[in-house]
Amino acid sequence: MQIRFWGTRGSIPVAANGRVIREKIKRALLLAEGLRFGSQEQVDRFIDESIEFPTKCGYGGDSSCIQILGGDDYMLCDMGSGLRRFGQHVITEHGPQNPKVYHFFMSHLHWDHIMGFPFFQPAYIPGNIIHIYGGHTVEVMKDAFRRQQSSPCFPVYWDQLGADIHFTQLKENQWHEINGFRIKLRGQEHHGGSFGYRIEKSGKALVYSTDAEHKLDNDKNTAGILDFYRNADLVIFDAMYSLADMITIKEDWGHSSNIIGVDLCLRARVKHYCMFHHEPAYNDEDLFKILQETRRYEEIVREALPLEISTAYDDMVIDL
């Protein structure tokens, strides 16, 4: 199983502006002061080895969309703005006249998780088959997509789409066999409800758990979360806020914190904890600092095996 992140930002897409890029260039030039590069390879080596991630790269700004590779068909979770780039990638790879099957698993239907669909080119091409699965009812799912592609929000209406599109409500807490994977849903605390997914194949387990406020104020609920995460190889987790923000001014906003993620993943003996759904107000330096702090917290509270921790970025790939 391989995971590819097409969008990792929470709530709304963001983009680096000219000032941000200028600051990155300035920092890189200062680091290179006095150096001479004799070849392109030396430049690449300097970038790879001497410049930190927030300067040489960045976390990206597309909203939630991840691809799970390892089945016969395309398979993704959520349709944030990152879906546009995924659609372009498919068209580039196969050309427009090569029908494919797509399986989408929706955490929920808030705008930042469906906004990529009107820009998903394969949806306009007859012959493509699109399955949209979720824990919400078919009526609720259809309504969200139809309203997004109707006047005055968007000029191309839902009924003008060329692909064959099917909606399916999946039952919670039972296994579903789709595209060669075993998939289970679990309801999460979020406005209007959201669903986490446990996806398994060939002895590997991924949990996609975004837009979830884990208050940990109910032992039974916490035990259910721990069971859902148990021994997962990778948990993609809504780490949008600091703990202080999450339980003060942003309480009931529907999101979790970086250190709640550490505590849950350690208790569930998860191997790799990946922070996701980044606060749009955070820049690359903020997210990098939070990653370092989160790793330090894990080091302090860890009592058994270490937990690998990463921060998702657009185009990141994780092999399980």
Binding site: L243, A244, E293, R296, Y297
Partner: peptide, 15 residues
């Protein structure tokens, strides 16, 4: 010191 560090990481030092 270790608890102070946890307060800083969680931003509890701000609230």
């Amino acid at each position: 010191p270790i608890i102070q560090e946890i307060f800083t990481i969680s931003r509890f030092d701000l609230v």
